[in-house]
Write a protein that binds this DNA or RNA. Structure first.
Lengths: 199, 199, 199, 199
DNA sequence: TATGAATGAGTCTTCATTCAT
DNA sequence: AATGAATGAAGACTCATTCAT
């Protein structure tokens, strides 16, 4: 019976913790770690400053839990893609699809990534996170090719180059800071290049 | 009475200002803006904390002057290259040369860049600096091609793609975090790809 | 609406209150008032933090009730001794007995006393408690002598001196921090001195 | 030349540091470590909160420096006495002199001691301080006797007992909480007892 | 009654900036 | 011009106490 009564309490507590993570991580991603203080986080989460420290060791802990919770989704959404759905016989459309996926979460990801990047140097845990995921991303994409019987030399290297190209392209498309750029053309060029890469 | 930021005219004064910029910018690039305090900067510069504010409006100003002074050298050394020296008939060696130039300053540049990137979002001036230089870099490289009578469609886009590829390649080579990568092969692949791009 | 401190009447409630007093007073005696927090007390007592404030006005109240409950037992166990049992014709053995009694509870008492003493200055109630008990202790011991027809001048003063000597002796014996001390000899000397005192 | 100019600055800085120690240690001795906050200390010292941390690592450091500076003077003034001045042939007057010395600084000492005692348990450094001084005090008094060719058994033990008696006596005299006490008589009794002790 | 989540005032400490000298 | 001591606002974190359930 006690169990039954306690459950909603736990649920509420969990929800509150989630709210703090969400608020904290969002603020940090938007404004940076040092431009975000615990009072703001608490306020945005709709809680008092005190409760924050009931759920988290310190401010850094909030951030780290946010990174664990949303990191993949924000920075590496492509990891969630089921590569079995791809048919690399139609590489062009596959790439277009991947590019679309990249773009979809790229905007928030890029800002967040840049606000956070500085922490990679001062904090090993953050550095490890990104290192691990980049490795996974490479492996993941490589697997897509392997599954589709793409047999090329230096697959690892080529995948890495490809990811970089797509990443740059997406960044460019999203921010399109350069008004003398034709993004459709750019996309085509990138795709052609990748096709050349894996020929 | 309005505070007056002194413009040093005497040699010693100028040297002092330079020392502060050098010390401050170096520390910020290495450890980040928020992990560097003015006392450290003054100490490393060999001056008193008070004098800092005779030459600079605030801590941010030190950083900004450092960026103006060293930014190009660190982040965009390639802008300093005389493109007339290149002969694009030998594109391969030209690219190898460019890659070498990138790599040379890339290491310090990359750490610095990552420590600083976060400031792009909170500060328009920093954002503008990088935006302007990226534009210049594109133009600069584009000019190398134009000077060498490379006439291709979408030159701007291709140059941008090329710069991205080189940038990624250099980053990978310098940090070579991935032990399953063959960097020589990777370099060759990138060069081949760029050649394909401009064919 | 005024807060009401509940006076527990049901057995379970009374037990709960006792548990809180016991846990709280013990922790405070061991670690000090400011090094003990209510969460710890509640946890050690096996109750929720909230319930504490149903039985006690505040943290200080817990301590004070603990002092009232255990103070005599810990700090003044000698007050519980039935002085009729003593035969001061055999002063030596009587003193040895008293010393033994002192020592028995001295260890816990001394730590507790030292952790608590600071509160004497900031709180009149605590000060009064110790003042009253010291008085009682003097009276009590004095009575032992009176009952045994010890008629000496300045009995009050002598009793006070005696208590001090015994207290110091016990403290020394228990902590025996000084390795150049012969505690048996010391005890003998003290007893001799007290005998001299009441001759 | 620089040296010459710098000296007064250093002097002022040292004075300020002293002021903080004095204010901090006094407040802590009077009100206790946990009842004294850095803002109060700074205010009483006539400085800003910030400067405190230029001179001291933390609040505890202020206390500890105060203990080192004033500890002996407050808690063990007798250590400063030149024991060569004593002639133990006239033990009575010597003791009266010692008692006077004890009493002089006893009042502040006792309050301070009690406020501080709690820290002995949580902090080894404080514990060591008092342990060392008590040892020194014993040695010091013992030396007075040795210098005066007092040859008795168990000198250490007797000295310890004597110090305890004097300490208690002084405490009683200063606070004279017990209105049924004749302090002159008590002093005489104590002196007689000590004489008996060393006979 | 009982729970334990929640509150928010209070504390220590840091650091960009100012000021007396 | 130069020093470095001084300022004080701001931030992270704690904890006695209250409150919704």
């Amino acid at each position: 019976m006690e169990e039954v009564i306690r459950v909603p309490k736990q649920k509420r507590a969990i929800e509150k913790k989630e709210k703090i993570i969400d608020a904290g991580f969002k603020l940090i991603c938007e404004n940076g770690y040092y431009n975000t203080n615990t009072a703001e986080i608490a306020k945005k989460a709709g809680v008092s400053t005190g409760i924050v420290y009931q759920y988290f060791k310190d401010k850094y802990d909030i951030f780290m839990e946010g990174l664990k919770k949303y990191g993949d989704e924000i920075f590496f959404p492509i990891l969630k893609i089921d590569y079995k759905k791809y048919n690399l016989n139609d590489l062009e459309n596959t790439l277009k699809d991947i590019i679309k996926t990249f773009i979809k979460n790229h905007k928030v990801s890029k800002t967040a990534h840049e606000e956070i990047t500085a922490m990679i140097h001062s904090n090993q845990e953050v550095a490890n996170y990104f290192y691990d995921r980049e490795l996974l991303l490479s492996e993941h994409i490589t697997n897509i090719f392997l599954e589709n019987n793409y047999k090329v030399d230096h697959l690892n290297e080529k995948v890495h180059i490809m990811i970089g190209m797509i990443d740059n392209l997406c960044h460019e498309i999203i921010y399109h800071k350069h008004d003398n750029m034709d993004y459709d053309a750019m996309t085509d060029i990138v795709i052609k290049n990748i096709e050349y890469l894996f020929k």
